[in-house]
Simulated assay, not measured.
Amino acid sequence: MTPHIVHVSSAHPWVDNRVHLREAAAAAAAGYRVRLIAVDSPLAAPETGVDVVRIPSRHRLRRMILSTTQALVLALRSRAPLVHLHDPELIWTIPVLRLAGRTVVYDAHEDLPDQVWGKDYLSPRQRAVFAFISHGLLRLAGTAHRVVTATEWTGRRFPVSRRVAIHNFPLARPEDDQQLPVLDRPAVVAHVGVLSHDRGIDVLARTVSEPHFPAGWRLEMVGSIDRATSTERLRAAQETGRAHHAGVVGPMEARDLLLHARVGVVPFRRTPVTDQIFPTKLFEYLAAGLAVIATDMPLWGHLLDGIECVTFVPADDPAAMARAISRYADDPALLARHSAEARRAAQRFSWAPEAARLVEMYDELLPDVRSSAPAGDAG
């Protein structure tokens, strides 16, 4: 049966939190027939009512040529009237899709020019060239019927009349409502998500070797490691027995880890990109009732103003992070109080209002489609 909406990614795995479990799933739950074209992965995802078509995982150059072309062909063959694109490398398909009569939504997960300037492996000259190209791509992306952005900051580059911010706030889960009190959990500091130089892999590795890191505590990590990132320090940290990296797991398994931890850490370096994003893990920590230790980012401080469960530390400072962990280890009453405050704060950062705003956008672009869909057609 022809889908109403097809979400397309040539870079993200089919289990991706934002692409599948939030946005595509929200449309399916609202009654739209939804298909997802995304990269194959052995990881599992819960049933969402989304029809998934997987394309092979390829290295960067082959992905940019073969995967984007394959994804475009599959999107056109789906005959879906609305195509929701999720990667900068798919921007070139926007005019093709529009000429084919499709309504196009482009999803800007991050600010592309800032992302380019943050690539340490590029020379300054290369960064300047790619940043120039990225501005041209964004002008082309702005020709989509709507541009969905993960933050208001990312949206500043697109026409006001066409943009809508849909934040990466976590899905509500019954498991979070049944969580153990924080003091009944293992003495674990948790980190979930991608590890790279900019996302604090070296800070985490050095934190467990600091003299202030509390005895009997350990650091548990899950998530992919950026291919350009050295893992030498991480391997050394694991050899001490105070740190463990469990590799890549599914999104719900990552959140399950948090229910068996006491503290969550967000050790980002200050870069043009990290200064302007809301990391999903931050909100997932709150939902799991964790005290949070995070880099002192002005945007995060503004967002969390008045919430007392977050300890901000300077960037690139493993000693400060170790001291913050030790503070919680030495003061169980403080840890319990911050855990309770985290659960209260989590109510402010719920996916439900974001999903409603996303579905409202689809309703505007596909008038009368949802109301005329036969009963039981959501999957």
Rank of each mutant, 00 (worst) to 15 (best):
V6Y: 02
V8Y: 02
S9H: 03
S9T: 07
H12E: 03
W14A: 08
W14T: 06
R18S: 09
H20Q: 10
L21A: 08
R22K: 15
A24F: 01
A24Q: 05
A25D: 01
A26G: 10
A28G: 09
G31D: 14
Y32Q: 02
V34H: 07
V34T: 05
L36K: 01
I37L: 07
P42W: 10
L43C: 11
A45T: 05
P46A: 07
P46Q: 04
V50Q: 05
V53T: 15
H59L: 00
L61R: 13
M64R: 12
T69A: 14
Q70F: 04
V73G: 11
A75V: 02
L76S: 01
V83D: 01
H84W: 03
T93A: 14
I94W: 09
L99S: 10
V104E: 00
V104Y: 02
V105L: 00
A108N: 08
A108P: 00
H109Y: 05
D111H: 15
K119H: 09
Q126K: 13
G136F: 04
G142E: 09
V147Q: 15
A150N: 13
W153M: 06
R157L: 10
V160S: 14
S161P: 06
S161W: 03
A165W: 10
N168G: 15
N168V: 01
P174A: 10
Q178T: 13
L180D: 11
P181D: 08
P186Y: 04
A187K: 15
V189L: 13
L195A: 00
L195I: 03
G200Y: 07
R206N: 06
T207E: 05
T207A: 10
V208A: 08
E210S: 14
E210M: 07
H212I: 04
P214I: 14
G216I: 03
G216E: 05
R218Q: 10
E220H: 05
V222D: 01
G223A: 06
I225D: 01
A228S: 07
T231N: 01
E232Y: 07
R242Y: 11
M252E: 15
E253Q: 15
A254S: 14
A254K: 04
D256H: 02
L257R: 05
L257Y: 07
L258I: 08
L258A: 09
L259I: 07
L259R: 12
L259M: 07
A261W: 08
R262Y: 11
G264S: 04
G264N: 04
V265Q: 06
T271C: 11
V273G: 08
T274I: 03
L282W: 09
L286I: 02
A288V: 06
G289R: 04
L290M: 00
H302A: 13
L303H: 12
D305E: 15
E308N: 15
C309K: 12
C309I: 08
T311V: 13
A315E: 00
D316W: 06
P318K: 01
A319P: 02
A322Y: 04
A324R: 01
S326N: 15
A329E: 11
D330C: 13
D330H: 14
D330K: 14
P332M: 11
L335Y: 11
E341K: 13
A342L: 08
R343H: 13
A345D: 12
W351I: 06
A352N: 02
E354R: 12
A355M: 05
E364R: 15
E364C: 08
D368K: 12
S371L: 11
A375S: 14
